[in-house]
Computed example of a mutant assay.
Amino acid sequence: MERILSLQDVRFTYTPDDPDGRHAVDGVSFDMHAGEWIAVVGHNGSGKSTLARLMIGLLFPQEGTVGLFGDTLTEDNLWEKRSQMGMVFQNPDNQFVGATVQDDVAFALENNGIPFEEMTLRVQNALKQVKMDTFLDHEPQHLSGGQKQRVAIAGALALRPRLLILDEATSMLDPQGREEVIRVILDLREKTGLSVISITHDLEEALLADRVVVMNGGRKFAEGTPQEVFLKGEALTELGLDLPFAMRLSALLGEQGIGTEPGTMTERKLVEQLWTLRSNR
């Protein structure tokens, strides 16, 4: 598969003149291929948000390289590479600039000189993809949190990115809003094969990814499938991360002599096991 992102021994510190300054990102390497969903998880201060800024060229590493779409990211090709990426941040209110939903989604397209007729089609298609096409003339500030993030995703999708980066995009949402956004991402991946990187502390969200990268103290602590990473159990909780709810409940049931499968990660799988145990009694 095509490699669209590559980090090679990347290091970055916010205090380069301090010989004892701690690296916010310290020797991180991993690759991403087209169509993948990678979740980058870690507690506050682990380096995951700095990593996101390095990926999109808001920061450049002092050591190592960031590769995007086959080329090393530099100041010379920054805008060309960034035009192939979409970014959705934690607080959707900070991203709105238009008076209406359609004005907001069209903003970046106007800046890129997209002709009006094509721009109109892109706006309508992007809003339809996130199921917000009936809100064209609504004012963004009157939308719910989940609706606002869906509009922010539409703004990114209208640019037709090859890579979508979500930086804590669900952290400020209530459970319903979080479910709305995750459902949109899953649907887009299924229909378009969109590549996604989600920077998150929500391990339930990370369960949906193809691969998980765990950050701690600026370093890559672990990398693998959700199953491989979350089976580390106590090692993750010692970093200040919660295990998925189904894993915690499965462990508690085991302490009570109810034998579910070790490492059960989803509530659906856990319910199926409990029904099987009940039926076999």
Results as ranks from 00 to 15, higher is better:
Ala152Gln: 04
Ala235Gly: 06
Pro175Met: 14
Thr65Asn: 05
Leu157Pro: 08
Gly177Pro: 14
Phe116Glu: 14
Gly98Arg: 06
Ala52Ile: 13
Ile165Asp: 02
Met215Glu: 13
Lys81Trp: 02
Asp31Met: 09
Leu51Phe: 12
Leu127Asn: 04
Thr13Val: 01
Val97Ile: 15
Leu73Asp: 08
Leu249His: 05
Gly64Leu: 11
Thr200Leu: 03
Asn111Ile: 14
Ser171Glu: 05
Trp79Lys: 13
Leu270Cys: 08
Ala169Glu: 02
Asn280Cys: 09
Asp210Pro: 01
Arg11Trp: 12
Pro226Ile: 12
Asp103Ser: 08
Val229His: 04
Gly155Pro: 01
Leu203His: 01
Leu207Glu: 06
Lys128Cys: 04
Arg162Trp: 03
Met55Trp: 03
Pro262Met: 15
Gln95Tyr: 04
Ala34Trp: 02
Gly45Leu: 05
Val41Tyr: 08
Gly217Asp: 07
Ser49Tyr: 07
Leu241Arg: 12
Asp76Ala: 15
Asn112Met: 13
Gln124Arg: 15
Ala34Lys: 14
Ala209Trp: 09
Ala158Tyr: 01
Lys128Phe: 04
Asp104Val: 07
Val130Leu: 06
Pro115Lys: 12
Thr72Asp: 10
Ala152Pro: 01
Leu186Tyr: 00
Ser46Asn: 07
Lys81Met: 15
Ala126Asp: 06
Val40Arg: 08
Thr134Arg: 08
Ala206Asp: 12
Ser29Val: 10
Leu173Ala: 05
Leu127Gly: 04
Ser6Leu: 07
Trp275Ala: 14
Ile185Ser: 08
Ala246Cys: 01
Leu270Ala: 09
Ala24Thr: 01
Pro92Val: 00
Lys48Ile: 11
Leu121Val: 15
Gln147Tyr: 01
Glu261Lys: 06
Arg189Val: 09
Asp9Pro: 00
Ile114Glu: 04
Thr266Arg: 15
Leu109Tyr: 02
Ala99Phe: 03
Phe12Val: 05
Phe245Ala: 10
Gly233Phe: 02
Glu261Gly: 00
Val212Thr: 14
Gly64Gln: 06
Gly193Ile: 04
Glu223Asn: 03
Met265Val: 10
Asp167His: 14
Ala154Asp: 00
Ser144Cys: 00
Val101Met: 05
Ala152Thr: 03
Lys269Ile: 03
Val66Phe: 08
Glu168Asn: 08
Glu36Arg: 07
Asp9Ser: 13
Gln90Asp: 02
Ser29Thr: 13
Glu234Ser: 13
Leu73Ile: 12
Leu188Tyr: 08
Val28Pro: 00
Glu117Ala: 15
Phe89Val: 12
His43Tyr: 07
Phe221Leu: 03
Ile56Thr: 14
Asp103Cys: 06
Leu157Tyr: 07
Leu239His: 09
Thr260Met: 01
Gly64Val: 11
Pro262Thr: 14
Gly67Pro: 10
Phe230Asn: 05
Glu267Met: 15
Gly155Gln: 02
Gln141Arg: 14
Glu75Leu: 11
Gln62Met: 06
Asn125Met: 07
Pro61Ala: 11
Gly70Glu: 13
Leu194Ala: 04
Leu51Gly: 05
Arg278Leu: 15
Pro115Tyr: 04
Val101Asp: 01
Gly177Cys: 00
Glu204Tyr: 08
His201Ile: 13
Ser144Phe: 04
Gly67Leu: 01
Asp31Gln: 13
Met172Gly: 09
Arg268Cys: 00
Val184Gln: 12
Pro61Gln: 11
Gly45Pro: 10
Gly217Met: 00
Ser195Arg: 12
Val130Lys: 12
Ser279Arg: 15
Leu186Pro: 00
Gln147Asn: 02
Pro92Phe: 03
